[in-house]
Amino acid sequence: KDKDLLKGLDQEQANEVIAVLQMHNIEANKIDSGKLGYSITVAEPDFTAAVYWIK
């Protein structure tokens, strides 16, 4: 199951987060929520590491 990592990002921010996570071998998903911006989700086992790397 995926957990929400970040919400309300613009496309550039979302792409930067995806890139950082991929560099650390964390699979992440970018979801277009329309006017609400983009959300990033990661698998539950990767959540703690993902939070660490996006600081």
Rank of each mutant, 00 (worst) to 15 (best):
K1A: 10
K1T: 09
K1W: 09
D2F: 14
D2W: 15
D2C: 13
D2T: 14
K3V: 14
K3C: 12
K3R: 12
D4Q: 15
D4S: 13
D4H: 14
L5M: 03
L5Q: 01
L5H: 02
L5D: 02
L5I: 07
L5A: 03
L6I: 12
L6D: 00
L6A: 06
L6K: 02
K7Q: 12
K7A: 11
K7D: 08
G8W: 06
G8T: 04
G8N: 08
G8H: 09
L9G: 02
L9F: 02
L9A: 02
D10I: 05
Q11F: 14
Q11R: 11
Q11H: 11
Q11T: 08
Q11N: 14
Q11L: 15
Q11M: 12
E12C: 14
Q13P: 03
Q13N: 03
A14R: 03
A14Y: 03
A14T: 03
A14N: 00
N15M: 09
N15L: 09
E16T: 12
E16G: 08
E16A: 14
E16S: 12
E16N: 12
V17R: 01
I18C: 07
I18Y: 05
I18K: 01
I18A: 03
A19T: 07
A19Q: 06
A19C: 11
V20L: 15
V20M: 15
V20Q: 06
V20G: 02
L21Q: 03
L21K: 01
Q22K: 14
Q22M: 12
Q22P: 00
Q22L: 13
Q22F: 10
M23K: 10
M23F: 09
H24F: 06
H24W: 05
H24I: 04
H24M: 06
N25L: 07
N25D: 08
I26C: 04
I26E: 01
I26F: 01
I26S: 00
I26R: 00
E27P: 14
E27L: 13
E27V: 14
A28P: 02
N29R: 13
N29C: 10
N29E: 07
K30L: 14
I31G: 02
I31K: 10
I31L: 06
D32Y: 14
S33F: 15
S33C: 15
S33T: 12
S33Y: 15
G34W: 04
G34L: 04
K35F: 09
K35E: 12
L36T: 09
L36D: 13
L36H: 11
G37Y: 05
G37T: 08
G37E: 04
G37L: 08
Y38P: 00
Y38D: 00
Y38G: 00
Y38F: 13
S39N: 10
S39W: 10
S39Q: 06
S39L: 11
I40T: 00
I40H: 00
T41S: 08
T41V: 10
T41W: 12
V42E: 02
V42F: 01
V42D: 01
V42R: 00
A43D: 05
A43V: 03
A43F: 06
A43G: 06
A43M: 07
P45Q: 15
P45M: 14
P45G: 14
P45C: 13
D46C: 08
D46S: 06
D46R: 02
F47N: 01
F47R: 02
F47G: 01
T48F: 12
T48A: 15
T48D: 15
T48P: 13
A49N: 10
A50E: 02
A50G: 03
V51P: 00
V51R: 06
V51Y: 10
V51M: 13
Y52A: 08
Y52R: 05
Y52F: 11
Y52Q: 08
Y52E: 11
Y52D: 07
Y52T: 05
W53C: 07
W53K: 01
W53H: 06
I54F: 05
I54Q: 02
I54D: 03
K55H: 13
K55Q: 14
K55P: 09
K55S: 14
